[in-house]
Simulated scan of single mutants.
Amino acid sequence: MVKLVLMNSEEYQKYITSAIKSYAIEKVLSGNWNQEESIRKAEEEYTRLLPIGEKTESNYLYTILNDDKAIGVLWLARKSEKEGFIYDISILEQYQGFGYAKETMTQIEIVGKELGMNKIGLHVFGHNKVARGLYEKLGYQTTNVLMEKEI
């Protein structure tokens, strides 16, 4: 069973470096940004959303553990008193396909409820059919490109 543990500063630094690159690639693949501007724009976006990194208020950045081994990350933000938003969920490539993302999504619903949330939303890039399929199976409803689920 997976476990969610809040990131420390060292884990956050590794996360942010990787996340900026991944986000830039996704924005280019989706046709939103061109290659030349993508890293700069991704850095600006992360700086805006997480101005003080893992200590940014109303943001919960987790390392996903399985048997005490880090297998991925999840970022949940409080958007209002009762609503959360998953900005990022990522399972390391070598651990994909084993149900860890599904387990993680179940765990974050428990965490969301503990934080007083009754709804969690997320964004999925249109070209990410695997993720869309998972979220739909878990009960998330499509609202434009955003998906959300009552929890």
Rank of each mutant, 00 (worst) to 15 (best):
A77V: 07
E54P: 01
G112N: 04
K69Y: 06
Q96N: 10
E43I: 14
L65D: 14
G97T: 02
K129E: 01
V111W: 03
E103Q: 12
M105V: 04
E136W: 12
G112F: 05
Y87H: 02
K149E: 01
M117H: 11
T143S: 14
I86M: 08
M105F: 12
E36H: 02
Y87D: 12
S30T: 03
G121I: 14
K129N: 06
N128E: 09
K69W: 07
H123N: 10
I86W: 11
M117G: 12
G126N: 04
K137G: 02
E83P: 09
H123C: 10
I71K: 03
F85P: 02
G121M: 08
L92W: 13
T106M: 11
E83M: 10
G84W: 13
Y95W: 13
D88T: 06
I120Q: 05
I39P: 09
D67T: 08
I91Q: 01
I39Q: 06
E93S: 12
G126Q: 00
I120P: 06
M117S: 05
P51W: 07
T142D: 15
G99L: 12
S58A: 10
Q141K: 12
F125T: 03
L49K: 15
I91M: 02
A77F: 07
E37S: 00
L92Y: 14
I39L: 14
L49T: 15
L115A: 06
M147F: 09
P51V: 04
M147N: 04
L76R: 14
T47D: 14
E136P: 05
G97D: 10
G121H: 01
N59S: 15
I89R: 03
I120H: 00
Q141P: 10
K41Q: 08
T47L: 14
A77C: 07
T106W: 06
F85G: 01
G31L: 02
W33E: 05
G72E: 01
S90P: 07
K137T: 04
L122K: 05
Q141N: 08
R132Y: 04
L115D: 03
E93M: 02
T106L: 00
K82R: 12
M147W: 14
Q35V: 15
L76V: 03
A101L: 08
V130D: 13
H127L: 09
Y135G: 07
L61W: 15
V124C: 11
A131I: 08
L134T: 12
Q141L: 10
E83C: 02
N59Y: 11
K79W: 01
T106A: 08
Q107F: 05
S38W: 00
V130A: 15
S38Y: 00
I108Y: 07
E114A: 00
R132S: 13
Q107P: 05
W33Q: 01
E136R: 10
K137P: 07
F85W: 15
N144L: 04
E44K: 11
